[in-house]
Write a protein that binds this DNA or RNA. Structure first.
Lengths: 251, 251
DNA sequence: GGGTGCATTTGATCCACATCAAAACACACT
DNA sequence: AGTGTGTTTTGATGTGGATCAAATGCACCC
């Protein structure tokens, strides 16, 4: 598949998603907040997410410091989350794609802790937090699943801590590519070829590396026959080889 | 206050805590799971935490891979959480002291994601998760507070990611010391002198540094008149100086 | 179609922290 | 007090990734 075809396939997929109205019909329901709910329960929560919101590329869904009142399910598009430090240093703390939940960091203090910025034109389902609380008290499947999503966010972050704390540059980048690949796969896209939505600098920020280091690692993987890279387009040639990069470390 | 007196004061404090039975009487209730509940609500959740458990220094409260069925509130003592990687590399992902909740990482997949190891003889309140779920549906204050605790864990971890991703060694260690100091303060201990419960290696693992680097930073802070260090004992001399170490970076 | 601005690549050099090594120290046990 | 074990300190050296610099490529826009 060419780069152009791939881009077309991805956007068609997203366009279809936008036509549908509610969780019941959403093709992301199996990986989103309603995952694991019965059809009855699903119907109950459907009016929970009645508000949709489009966010254009480069715009913020929310920003650190804003009052928190809703969490968001990504319906289409792609987001980065990033925190800015008092002294201006900032870091990307995560990337979110369809079916993933954004904003759970705001619950703790009622204030968003990070910015959520769309990396392409995106759409989200807005889920008012007080209504989610209420409904979680009635629909135990929803309560349980919501807790799972928060817990998995904790686990995801400790995975990133591991990455930042103990892995070397190439391992981080191999792990990153495999992670993106696996998430695209879970959403029905090709796990072997895709267009990155973020810049080298954003990848670097997420992985605790400089953009030059990211670029060099991509080039090295390319030369080693593990991947093909051409700007934002990536094709994974040798999945196992990539896995070995971060399994087979110095020892 | 001498090192000996300080140790005695801390353990007396803990001994008193152990005499009391329930959340209603617990001196940690303001920072633990029941924080913010009314007296009525507090009474309702009291039988939730009926099971106590002692964990001796070096023993595990739980280990990665074990089935998750309860979260734990630290009643006395000190824990580290650490994850071990397939290839044997591991990393400390957090330290927990009185009033803090352990085990929320297990909710997502029903399996604990990390080891929780006592760094001194400790005691925890065991909170069966299914009962917590039930009660959270009835006591909305509990539900809300539980969500807040999970969310704050997410925020805490993104703080660590920032630390690992963008800070230099001395900044990390200054931030670490100030964080410990502030948490001790919130629990009624002196924020300016305390005994670390963990080794240099464990601090290093948490901060993504080698133990020698931690030791060198401690020595440097000592020489710069910011702190006094003698093995595990730390006295903070110049809080503002310490804050400047990580506020005043290269620019 | 050519210009402007941002993203990416690649090379050369530097430095913060890791690594290696050894000594000093603390604590538990006998 | 003496011995063993694990922790901490300190020094000397090495290196992975940062930094600095410059060229190239791509997208957008007039």
């Amino acid at each position: 598949m060419s780069r152009g075809e791939l881009a077309r396939q991805q956007s068609t997929h997203l366009a279809l998603a936008e036509l549908k109205a509610a969780c019941v019909n959403c093709n992301l329901r199996e990986i989103c907040l309603p995952a694991g709910l019965s059809n009855e329960e699903l119907a109950q929560i459907d009016n929970l997410v009645n508000v949709r919101r489009k966010v254009k590329r480069g715009e913020a869904l929310y920003r650190a410091g804003e009052v928190f009142d809703a969490i968001y399910a990504v319906r289409s598009g792609f987001f980065k989350s990033c925190v800015t430090y008092e002294d201006g240093r900032d870091q990307v703390t995560g990337f979110s794609m369809g079916g993933e939940i954004l904003g759970m960091d705001g619950i703790g203090h009622g204030i968003h802790n990070c910015d959520a910025i769309a990396l392409e034109d995106s759409e989200v389902c807005s889920i008012p937090y007080v209504r989610l609380e209420e409904l979680a008290r009635e629909v135990s499947g929803l309560q349980r699943h919501f807790h799972k999503m928060m817990s998995r966010e904790i686990v995801r972050e400790s995975g990133v801590m591991m990455l930042l704390g103990v892995m070397r540059a190439e391992e981080r980048i191999a792990a990153f590519l495999l992670n993106i690949s696996q998430r695209l796969n879970a959403r029905g896209y090709s796990p072997l070829e895709f267009n990155l939505r973020m810049t080298r600098e954003e990848i670097g920020s997420y992985l605790g590396l400089k953009l030059e280091t990211v670029s060099r690692a991509f080039s090295k993987f390319h030369n080693d026959g593990l991947i093909e890279v051409e700007q934002k387009f990536v094709r994974i040639i040798d999945v196992d080889g990539l896995k070995q990069v971060y399994a087979h470390h110095v020892n």
